[in-house]
């Protein structure tokens, strides 16, 4: 089943208490190479039927309206992926079939 992935992160300029707690744990474990950790969210929306530009645009709107709160978060990415490519290692190779958002990509904050 095709899937649309939405990634949301706390705004860079805001304190991220969850990330700070993880960074503290890393430091206590002696992992000194990491100066900061930020912790966000990834949504995987399973789609009934094919993913087209109209649906991606709809999800882009949903990401802005419901899946994130623009006061405290930024939408980092909205893209399509095949379910086979999700799960462990999905993003580690070239096999992930990610579809750029097209025209709406301009509004996606990186």
């Amino acid at each position: 089943m095709p899937t649309i992935v939405v990634e949301v992160m706390p705004k860079a300029e805001l304190l991220d208490p969850q990330g700070k707690a993880v960074a503290g744990a890393l430091a206590r474990l002696g992992k000194s190479r990491f100066s900061d950790v930020r912790l966000g969210k990834r949504f995987e929306l399973t789609v009934d039927g094919p993913v087209d530009d109209a649906l991606l645009a709809e999800v882009q709107q949903l990401a802005a309206d419901l899946l994130s709160n623009s006061v405290i978060e930024d939408v980092i990415s909205v893209h399509a992926a095949e379910a086979d490519d999700l799960g462990p290692g999905a993003d580690s190779g070239d096999t992930t079939t990610e579809t750029p958002l097209g025209a709406a990509a301009d509004s996606v904050q990186r």
Binding site: P10, P17, N69, V71
Partner: peptide, 17 residues
């Protein structure tokens, strides 16, 4: 009320953790 945009701003996790 902040999520409904009746009041400005937002609430995040306590800084003290």
């Amino acid at each position: 009320l902040t999520e409904a945009h009746l009041l400005p701003g937002g609430l995040i996790r306590n800084a003290v953790g």
